[in-house]
């Protein structure tokens, strides 16, 4: 499977604002939200809307550092597969997601256009700020 041509750009995005000043900036930009434009209220609305039962499977496609799939899985008890291209993003989210979800979370570096997953495997998919 060939990674998208702009993989390097995706990786570079996650290497930015990792300094101390960068961390303060990120915290001031979105509070407790790790990344992206989806607010906590919107993520909670998504969790209520998808109506997953504990143990059902959720795919967060283009997950970045894990938002908002992590919150949806926390609120619903779902198992979460978190997929994205930049390994750096997955790495940055790993410890926090493990603490929040324990053994209920898996991370995969992969291209959303060709997922190594069988048909009909998930009860819900979330896909935020990836199309744009």
């Amino acid at each position: 499977m060939h990674p998208p041509a702009n993989t390097r750009l995706f990786e570079e995005k996650y290497l930015r604002f990792q300094s101390e000043a960068g961390a303060r900036f990120r915290a001031a930009s979105g509070g407790s939200v790790p990344n992206g434009w989806t607010t906590v209220e919107q993520a909670e609305w998504m969790a209520a809307t998808v109506g997953l039962a504990p143990g059902e499977r959720l795919l967060d496609l283009g997950a970045g550092r894990g938002w908002p799939g992590e919150l949806i899985a926390q609120h619903t008890g779902a198992q979460l597969l978190s997929v994205d291209v930049p390994i750096e993003a997955l790495r940055q989210g790993r410890a926090r997601m493990r603490e929040a979800l324990g053994a209920r979370v898996w991370q995969v570096c992969g291209d959303g256009r060709a997922l190594p997953i069988g048909d009909g495997h998930f009860s819900a998919v979330c896909h935020t700020d990836v199309l744009c």
Binding site: W37, L59, D119, G120, S123, A124, V125, H127, T128, D129
Partner: peptide
Amino acid sequence: MLRECYRVLRPDGLLVVAAIEL
């Protein structure tokens, strides 16, 4: 990518998409 989302969802499964658009 949306067609992949469709493929991996069970019947009546839900897709939630958030995006900036024109």
